[in-house]
Design a protein around this nucleic acid. Structure first.
Ligand SMILES: [Mn+2]
Ligand SMILES: [Mn+2]
Length: 577
DNA sequence: GTTTGCACCG
DNA sequence: TTCACACGTTCTG
DNA sequence: GAACGTGTGTCTCGGTGCAAACTA
């Protein structure tokens, strides 16, 4: 990790200018007159006015107190503010002599203590010390005109231009959750991103309507919050006003949002409305929810039709697994379909381990099981890695394909992943690069070589599959030594079938017995069961002949409070099937 | 007084 | 812009 | 056991200082 370099004095202005210039140039045909004026006016400001504006914009909220602002690199803040006001980048209010702002939210600039003093001096009322600031604020706002006299004498600023800035940020990053701190953290060496080539034509947005659609989406998302306290009508209205844009990110988000909205409408008890919402989403579990509702409503014909469609072309492995368990239980009448889904995969191997509850709770159930194995079988090595080993190795081996420079995949320097990583045609668009990566799977030697090479070369660079702190060189060597190449091929192929769904659900532990082999162990505490994506992987393990078991932990009632971590393993095979 | 949360900075 | 997982409760066969 | 809702650690950094809320 390189030593943090010093940044230039006005690093933030450099970054801001870079974003503005980039967007104004690359998206010249997308930005509107208002945004163009914003850009031109900003460029025309003096440097210290620019600095102040960027400083304020990068802080929370619109309101600022003059007496709290101090920046070494801006000697005359007042002059800068006056200049900014002349170009309508902000508004200056002098509370004691000028008029008050129209909107009530500037009052929050003052501390609880200051508000209390103002109320007491102006009205001679005692303010109870127990009042919270929020209550004090509402009391103040009822009578701001009069109470303002008791506040500290300072100008306050209201900063404008957030809308315009959002447009620039959105066009630059393709989202509204990244901001200028990305630059700083990268330049300090805290974040490291792969350095793909950003050729000048990299645009994610091709028409103004895409931009508007994104902004509408973000606005609706904000209005919806976590959906908890919205009525059915509000939920339906939000679903109906979602932008229909087919821009890929937005389509993905819309389909996902529709599932969430449908779920909430279901909870409120409106199955029919939920059905129509789900019908508009292609994302799992939209069809699962529809089938559940149809069956619950007894709409046999529709249910049969939908179930056939799902069985014919499951949208993903999880939907397939759902059908396998749901149809035989709830749609017994449909013999044809039950027949078709009869590909019985036997239940996962299960073993039971007993240990004192205290051990389980203090170490965490996964570590407790790992420790029990290691003491029971000295020489065993157990690693608690969940999704970090197999997807991590995947990230290393296929690094160059993941970051292949496909048009549109990269459009700014702070992407952890290509924008289309989870799209269905991700692999197809990079077939050549993937073929090259597959060559490393020829033998254990080539696999290890490629893994270690990437491990060293890309150390610390952000990757959606690789977590550098957990994936040690030691673990890579051991796992390549123990896990046959054919197994690696199998799991990578399965991952590539559906990166989004399959990147999770891998078992808690991997066990390397003393001398040879490996085994995957999913630990389940009392009352826990396999999750959907874990079932999906277990089914795949069986198809691939990969050794995997579930370890069910039970509390040992005889060993109360005992400090010993001696877990007894029982080789008890589940009698299922 | 002390604790806690969080905005800000680089 | 989260996510992935575990855990607790309720219902049902 | 299935299904559902909710809690918990990842919250991508580490350091600083202020203000609010709590404790007596
Ligand atoms: Mn786990
Ligand atoms: Mn587990």
């Amino acid at each position: 990790m390189p030593v943090a370099p010093d940044l230039p004095e006005k690093y933030y202005l450099d970054n801001f200018n870079l974003v503005l210039n980039h967007v104004a140039q690359l998206y010249a045909d997308i930005i509107n007159e208002d945004e163009r004026t914003f850009y031109d006016d900003f460029i025309g400001l003096s440097e210290s006015a620019q600095c102040l504006y960027v400083r304020l914009l990068s802080r929370r909220g619109d309101w600022f107190r003059r007496d709290k602002l101090a920046y070494a690199e801006i000697p005359d803040i007042t002059a800068a503010a006056v200049e900014l006001q002349s170009q309508r980048f902000l508004e200056i209010y002098d509370l004691q002599s000028g008029g008050l702002p129209q909107e009530d939210d500037w009052q929050n600039l003052f501390t609880r203590q200051e508000l209390a003093t103002a109320i007491q001096t102006s009205t001679a009322q005692k303010v109870p010390a127990s009042l919270r600031k929020q209550e004090l604020l509402t009391r103040f706002e009822e009578n701001s005109e009069q109470l303002v006299a008791g506040l500290p004498d300072t100008e306050i600023y209201c900063v404008y231009g957030e809308q315009e800035l959002d447009t620039f940020r959105l066009l630059f990053f393709g989202n509204l959750y990244q901001d200028f701190t990305e630059f700083v953290l990268r330049d300090l060496g805290i974040y490291r991103y792969e350095s793909y080539d950003l050729n000048a034509a990299s645009r994610w947005c091709h028409q103004r309507s895409d931009l508007e659609a994104h902004r509408l989406y973000y606005a609706l998302r904000e209005e919806a919050g976590d959906l908890k306290d919205l009525s059915k009508e509000s939920l339906c209205r939000i679903a109906d006003s979602l932008p229909a844009s087919e821009e890929s990110t937005l389509r993905r988000r819309r389909h996902r949002f529709l599932v969430d909205i449908g779920r909430q409408i279901e909870r409120l008890g409106y199955s029919d409305e939920a059905l129509t919402i789900y019908e508009r989403s292609m994302r799992h579990p939209a069809r699962e929810r529809r089938l559940r509702i149809l069956v619950a409503q007894g709409q046999q014909e529709d249910a049969d039709e939908l179930a056939f469609a799902m069985a014919k072309a499951p949208v993903n492995e999880e939907e397939h697994q759902f059908l396998l368990s749901f149809v035989p239980r709830k749609m017994k009448h449909n013999h044809e379909l039950c027949q078709r889904l009869a590909e019985r995969v036997s239940a996962p191997l299960e073993d039971v381990m007993t240990m004192p509850a205290e051990t389980r709770l203090s170490l965490g159930v996964e570590r407790a099981v790992a420790a029990a194995f290691e003491s029971e079988h000295p020489g065993d090595r157990l690693v608690y890695c969940e999704n970090l080993l197999i997807p991590g190795m995947f990230g290393l081996i296929f690094w160059s394909a993941i970051y292949a420079e496909v048009p549109g995949a990269f459009f700014h320097p702070f992407q952890i992943r290509p924008s289309d990583l989870y799209e269905a045609d991700f692999v197809t668009l990079r077939q050549k690069e993937f073929d090259v990566c597959w060559q490393a799977l020829e033998s254990a030697d080539t696999l290890l070589e490629r893994a270690l090479e990437t491990y060293q070369k890309k150390q610390g660079i952000a990757n959606p599959f690789v977590h550098w702190a957990v994936l040690t060189e030691d673990l890579i060597r051991l796992s390549v030594e123990r896990i046959p190449v054919g197994v690696w091929q199998g799991v990578f192929r399965f991952l590539l079938q559906d990166l989004r769904q399959h990147k999770a659900g891998l078992p808690d532990l991997i066990r390397f017995p003393t001398s040879e082999g490996f085994e995957l162990l999913e630990v389940k505490g009392p009352g826990d069961t396999l999750q959907k994506n874990q079932r999906v992987w277990f089914a795949e393990f069986e198809r691939l002949g990969i050794p995997a078991r579930v370890i069910r932990v039970k509390d040992d009632p005889t060993a109360l409070g005992g400090a010993g971590l001696t877990g007894a393993e029982q080789g008890e095979e589940s009698p299922e099937d």
